[in-house]
Simulated assay, not measured.
Amino acid sequence: MSEQGANSQMGYQNALGERRFGRVNWLGLQTLAQREITRFLVVWTQTLLAPLVTAALFLLIFNLAIGPKRGDVMGVPFLHFLAPGIMMMTVIQNAFANTSSSLVISKVQGNIVDTLMPPLSGLEILLGYLAGAVVRGTMVACGIAVGLAVVLQIVPAHPLIALVFIVLGALFLGGLGIVAGIFANKFDQMAAITNFIVTPLAFLSGTFYSINALPPVLHALAQVNPVFYLIDGLRFGMIGTSDGAPFVGMAICAGASFAICLLAWAMLRGGYRLKA
């Protein structure tokens, strides 16, 4: 190899190393984020339409079963109290599904190497996956919000606060989905994580009730569940009422999201259960 060719090769390797470990690889990050967003847009009837139908069925069933008998909750009609909880539950379930399914499918099909081989750092891979989770969660939330405005005439009392909690919810469960997707090597392992961790977090967090009505022990347990603060904060943003202080809940949710994303970053950076 000539001296000029060697210098060119060395310059390329230095630029590649700087691109990977120094400056952000914007092209790679954009490509990964676009891939994750395109994944769910291609099958929008399953990833966007189906959650809207499920949320509508939840509201319909609760209204038919106990709505007229329940009366007001925290000074608002029961369906108005219930709607933000259903919205957040749908957001976090879809954010979790987006990141976890992407990783598990890639591992099962053996093409996870397509994500690991390009010059992307652990942080860039993390942000790419989270972009898909946040976009999907936000789109689902917007669809439900439009339905609530048309059917129940619920207009967000504090739209900016509602949006912040929606993004925090997508980040938290999107990060948790990455951790679960890295840990799980088979679909049944992912199903176990969903059934025994994600679903209880969503259902036992004030989605269908005020935690002030719980016995002291269950009330204390609910207060250590980050999903409770997500639902409570979104409830404040949507209807202006909540069990706790929304800005305290926002700080707790931000801390929980940062912690789980930090764990996901460490696992991606180290290649835990990803590299043979």
Rank of each mutant, 00 (worst) to 15 (best):
A95M: 08
M87V: 13
T90A: 15
N94Q: 13
M74Y: 01
F96I: 06
D72L: 12
M87W: 04
F81K: 00
G75H: 11
V76M: 07
M74N: 13
Q93W: 11
M87L: 15
S102I: 05
N98E: 15
N98T: 15
L82H: 00
G71L: 12
I86N: 03
L82V: 12
M88W: 02
A83R: 01
P77A: 10
I86H: 01
S101E: 04
A83N: 07
P77N: 10
M88N: 07
F81S: 00
S100Q: 09
V76P: 03
I86R: 02
H80Q: 13
M89F: 09
A95K: 10
G85D: 06
F78Y: 15
A83L: 10
N98L: 12
L82D: 01
T90D: 05
D72H: 11
A97I: 04
S100V: 14
A97S: 13
D72S: 10
M88E: 12
F96T: 00
V91W: 08
A83T: 15
M88C: 10
M74T: 11
M89G: 13
I86G: 03
S102G: 12
A97H: 04
T99S: 12
P77M: 10
G75L: 14
M87C: 13
M88R: 06
M88Y: 07
L79F: 10
D72C: 01
G71R: 11
S101D: 09
P84T: 11
V76L: 06
S102T: 14
L79N: 12
I86M: 09
A95G: 10
A97Y: 03
A95L: 06
H80N: 05
S101A: 11
G85K: 03
L82R: 00
N94P: 03
V91M: 03
G85H: 06
N98W: 03
V91A: 03
A95R: 08
L79A: 09
S100M: 11
H80C: 01
M88L: 15
T99W: 12
S102C: 06
L79I: 15
D72Y: 14
F78G: 03
P84Q: 10
A83S: 13
F78H: 06
N94R: 06
D72G: 00
S102F: 08
S101T: 15
L82T: 07
F81E: 00
S102N: 07
T90E: 12
V91H: 08
N94L: 00
T99I: 06
A95W: 04
V91E: 04
L79T: 13
M87Y: 09
H80P: 01
